[in-house]
Every structure is written in structure tokens, then in C-alpha cells.
Nucleic acid binder design. Structure first.
Lengths: 340, 340
DNA sequence: TTCCTTTTGCAAAACGTTTTGTATCTGGTG
DNA sequence: CACCAGATACAAAACGTTTTGCAAAAGGAA
């Protein structure tokens, strides 16, 4: 219940004026205050536990130092956590704080939530999706600095950051090829999203680069969940000329592939190697043996988005940029040489 | 770049005074304005897209309408997403917004982050953990309305919400018993945390209630991850008098039990039934067959915490309360009758 | 001493609201 | 017409800062 300590209290305690305190604390307009007094003021402020009221200073400078993060769902995967944390950490490093808001798929709710953010005078907004997709930025964001996270839009005047899907697939398939495989199958997603196309392209690129022939029957599609992966893998691994390695659209699909392999009596990686994408630790670490996979840089994307947004805010005018972040290979135990 | 529309603009457009606008919009101090004018003002405000500046109003009424949510890690499991969303939704329904901040295990960072929240004048904070544990509330929260989420502390003057661990285990084991099992094993956690003890207690309660004898050799402990569950289950299921059902500390442990069963050539649920706790969809849905498990009410806890916090803020003085939320059984396919 | 220069203080305005007290307007009633 | 009640307007203060212009103090150098 102790009434908050304000700048006047600090001034009184330090025996200087509020003007001096203000200058001492925000050393911006320097040289109105001598180094010694500045130190004194700071010490006193610390001792008193003074914390400037950001509503007041924000009101005065028309800067809230708050960023909005609007996302769709954040419940099913841990990806959201990583992105938010990346955004958070970056914001914190630069003296900002993040207001998170999520609206599921309800665009009316989204509108109202963005409105709330505006009322709180957020300095900018990160517009995030939980998986890489193409979006239309809501009209309410008009006039607010905005950066897209894990999403892109037609309007190239908005900066965005996404995973390098093609590169991720190339990384995975290169690793498979390096291990000696020549008959490689892919379990792709049936949905028409950027990840589907990008990863397919990367898969084909890697094969081509190494002069490996692509057998279209070994690129199958299915639902991007475990059940879909299981079915697809059962089909692929049941054939006599089965592939010796499987590149899977995601770790969940890879989990299905494990189940299929086990059901068929194939050992991993002795009889068949499996590589995924996502580095969904809760699955990749839990599979037996551990799943070799390519990590999606969620934390880094969150961080990148906020840094970009703050650059935009702090000195506007830079051209928008569409960035794709690298996806590193995480080796566990599911990739080995092909059976001889 | 259109300069924000303020209350004066609304007043001018509606042809009334700012006083009237303010009264019309916050109908609190009623009857200073006639219903007709109120409607007029509201229409004009909507047409102009007027959004009250919360920094200004907050400064004036010493109320930011912002809640802080400080948590530890939010990266590995999707639980964080559910809790945050629950908190979020509840806050939104009552006109508040949430600032999320997370500090890992770095308590110095936590201190500084709480400080930031204070600077932004949050009206209260939810102090959250990602798994049920006992915590010490940091001194910086002194004087701020606080509610604990998925955590408890010695000081019973702070309200808290946690899952009903004992009840969750009872629910799971009751279901197993209803299915006809009499030889039931438990794979518990080795860590000394509330969940470990609560779930053990619930397990024993259920057995006792049905007059089933508890064989201590069938309650084994291990690391609460998949590998730990696998090892523990291999031991338990390898014996001739193996249990016909396994109650697992968590879904990840249950996944290990699946692996062990598969390795031993046991079918689920024909040869052995398995029940978990967590309802970690990404795993429970992915296992084959689907995992019957008990859900931890993360969303509900987040929502409860915020509602409690706002009750505290809006009319202080109510006694603190320690709440435990129910955990419902989620049936999939891993529980069946015992082999005959 | 006198004149600078550097450091500090003081007062005031501004940010956009809410809230209060008082004054004004309107229309109806006696 | 005079009076009254209800509805509204107006002006001002307050919330806690930042920033400005100007004045005052403290030194040092001439």
C-alpha cells in the first residue's frame, strides 16, 4: 500500500529539481547535468526504488514502448512458445514489452483485439501465424508499423520472416544422400501451403544435384499428422523396391513412419532411415531411436521480427524486406547408412 | 499517418462538449446526459473510429487495465499456450489485456522483467509455472495483486490454482479398474514435486477403494520422459506376473511404455492397457492406438487465475483461496479389458 | 572586481483523458 | 411572466512525466 514513489520524491531526496532528475535519468539531452550529480540522482533513484511511470512518459512522448503480437492459435504445438519467447527476449533487450493477443480463426474477434492494442497505443505489431502461410493483413493495422511472422502477404511493402522451406528440405535430403542412400522416398503434405511446395522443391533439388533419379511413385502425400504418415509409409515401405530412407514433411509424419516401420518389422536406422522437419523436441527426442530432423527457427523468427519492427519504429523509411531463415540439421539416431 | 482522433474531435463532430462525450461513453456517472445524446455521441464516435487513449485514461484513473503474466519457460510443451490463451481470453472478456513476460530460470532477469511490468503500471500479475510446483513469490511483487497459476506457495494469503493431482490419478485408475483390471502397475516420476506425490496418492486411493491389493514392486519410478518410461515399463512388463494395465505419470512416460510394450511383442490394449496424464494432444493423438489419458486443465487454470485476479483488483479484500481444478478423462484407444 | 561559462533551478506547457463545480440553456408549469 | 428542473456547456484541475526558455548560482579567468 505504500504510495508509489515519483520523480518529485527522487528530486526531493536528492536535493535537486525534477528537471535535473529527468535529465539525469534519460541522459539523452546530455550536459545539462554534471556527471557527479547524475550519479547521485541515479543512486538516490535506485535506493528509493523509483520506477518511472510509463503511462505518464508514454503519454508525454507519444511512445508506449509496447509492441503487440497478434497470432492465431497458440495451443497445439510448442512452436508458439518459442516464437513468443523470441519476440519477448528481443523486445526486452531493447526496452520494450510485448502484449500478446490471439484470436483463433475468428476475424471479428481479431478486429476487436487489434482495437484494444491500438487503444493501448502499441508502437507496432507483429502479425504472426503458427505455421507458415499466406495471409491478408487486417485493415485495422493500417498506419501501424507491422511485421509478419511465419507468414507472408501479397503486399510486399510489409516485411516478413519465414523459414527457408526449400533450404530446409535440401539440408535434410543432402544429409540422407551423404549417408549413402540412393533410393529416397518423401512423405509430403497434401495441403496446398508454402511448406508443401517448398519442401518438395528442396527434395527434388537435392536429388537432381546429385544426379539421382526421382521416381514419382516414391513421393507420396497424405494428411500431415501421424496417422497420415503411417498410412503413407506403410504403402511405401511395403513394396519390394522400398526406399532405404524416408524424408518426412514433419516430425509428426515421421512418427507415423516409425510406426509403419515397426509394424513391418523394419529397424530404424538399420533397415530404413527416417528424417523429419520441425525438431518438435517432445516427439523427436521421444522417438526410439531419436529422430534426426531439421529445426524450424521459431525462436529466431520471433526475435528477427521484433528487431525488424523496432528498426522500423525507431527510424522509419527503410524498405521492407522478405527474409527466410536457415533451418539447421539436428542429428539424433534415425539416419544411418543404407542396408547393404 | 492520419493523426489519431481524440475526444475533442468527437465532441466537435457531435456538436457537444468533451465533458458530455466522456460521460456518454463511460455511462458510469449516469444521468448527466440524456439517452438520445448518448446515442448520438456513440454513433459519432464509432463513425470517426474513435478509440480512447488508454495511456491517458489510465494515467488519470490510476488503472492501466493491463495484467502481467510472468512465467518460467514456455518453450518445450504446448501447455504454456493453453494457459496463456486461457488467461488472455478471460482478460479480454473483462476489458483487460495481458503482458506476457518469461524469464527462464534466471531470477535476476525475472526481477528486471517484473520491474518493467510495474513501470507499465500493471494492475496485477499472474505468477505462473509451466508445471505444478511450489514457488517463492519474488519480493518485487509486494503490494501488487497476485495470483499463482499452476503453482503454490507457503504464504496462504495468495490465491492459487492447480490441477487436482490426486483426483486426476483417481480418475485414471478408476477407469482402469472399471475396465476389469486387478493387476495395475504405475510408472511414477522420480522427482520430488507435488504431481509425483499427488498422483501416487490417487493411485493408492483408487486401489484401496476397490479392495485391490497394492504390490509395491509394481509401482516403479523413473525419469519423467519417454526414455524413463520405456525403461521402467520394460522392467515391469518383462516379468511373468506382469500387470495388465499401466498407469503412467505423464503422456510422455506413456509413450515410453508403448515402446516397451511393442519391443516385448505386447499389443495395446489387447495384452496391456496404458493410461497417461496430460492429454498432450501431439503425443496422445499420435500414438497408435490413441492414448487414453487424463487432461490437465491448463486453459481453465489460466482463465480461473485471471478471473480471480480481476475480482481481487475490482473489489479487494476477499480472502485468498487455494483452488484445485478437476481433470477429465479423455478416452482414446489404449484402455481395454484385461487379457483373459 | 567584472565577465564568462558551466551547472542547476524554476515555472510552465504539453500529452489525452476524467471528474467536479458552476454556469447556461431549454422547455414546461404555475 | 416568473420560476424550476433537467440537460448540457464550460473551465479547470489532476494523473506523472518530458522538455523548453529563462533566470540564478557557482566558479574560474581576466
Amino acid at each position: 500500500m505504500t504510495t508509489r514513489v515519483g520523480i518529485r520524491d527522487v528530486a526531493k531526496a536528492a536535493g535537486v529539481s525534477v528537471t535535473t532528475v529527468s535529465h539525469a535519468l534519460n541522459d539523452a539531452t546530455s550536459f545539462r547535468v554534471k556527471a557527479a550529480t547524475q550519479q547521485l540522482v541515479r543512486d538516490v533513484a535506485r535506493d528509493l526504488g523509483y520506477a518511472p511511470n510509463k503511462m505518464a512518459s508514454g503519454l508525454r512522448n507519444q511512445r508506449s514502448q509496447i509492441l503487440g503480437l497478434v497470432s492465431d492459435e497458440i495451443t497445439t504445438t510448442p512452436f508458439a512458445g518459442a516464437m513468443i519467447r523470441g519476440a519477448q527476449d528481443a523486445a526486452y533487450d531493447r526496452g520494450y514489452v510485448v502484449m500478446v493477443v490471439n484470436s483463433g480463426l475468428d476475424s471479428e474477434l481479431e478486429t476487436r483485439e487489434i482495437n484494444m492494442l491500438r487503444q493501448h497505443q502499441v508502437d507496432g505489431v507483429v502479425y504472426a501465424r503458427m505455421y507458415h502461410q499466406s495471409v491478408q493483413v487486417p485493415a485495422e493495422l493500417e498506419g501501424l508499423p507491422t511485421v509478419l511472422l511465419d507468414s507472408v502477404t501479397r503486399d510486399s511493402s510489409i516485411s516478413s520472416v519465414t523459414p527457408d522451406e526449400v533450404g530446409a528440405a535440401e539440408t535434410a535430403v543432402e544429409a540422407i544422400i551423404q549417408a549413402g542412400h540412393t533410393r529416397i522416398g518423401m512423405l509430403n503434405n497434401i495441403d496446398d501451403i508454402p511448406a508443401t511446395h517448398g519442401r518438395r522443391e528442396g527434395f527434388l533439388n537435392a536429388l537432381r544435384r546429385h544426379g539421382l533419379q526421382h521416381d514419382p511413385r516414391q513421393l507420396v502425400i497424405g494428411q500431415p499428422e501421424t496417422a497420415g504418415g503411417r498410412e503413407a509409409a506403410l504403402g511405401l515401405l511395403g513394396q519390394p523396391d522400398r526406399p532405404t530412407a524416408l524424408f518426412c514433411f514433419s516430425d509428426r509424419v515421421a512418427m507415423g513412419a516409425y510406426q509403419a516401420a515397426t509394424a513391418l518389422g523394419l529397424r530404424i536406422p538399420e533397415d530404413v532411415s527416417i528424417v523429419g522437419i520441425d525438431n518438435l523436441e517432445i516427439i523427436a527426442d521421444a522417438l526410439w531411436p531419436g529422430l534426426t530432423t531439421v529445426a524450424l527457427p521459431h525462436y529466431e523468427m520471433g526475435s528477427w521480427a521484433v528487431h525488424r519492427l523496432l528498426d522500423d519504429i525507431e527510424n522509419p523509411g527503410a524498405p521492407a524486406v522478405q527474409t527466410q531463415l536457415d533451418c539447421p540439421l539436428i542429428e539424433r539416431g534415425s539416419l544411418g547408412p543404407p542396408p547393404s
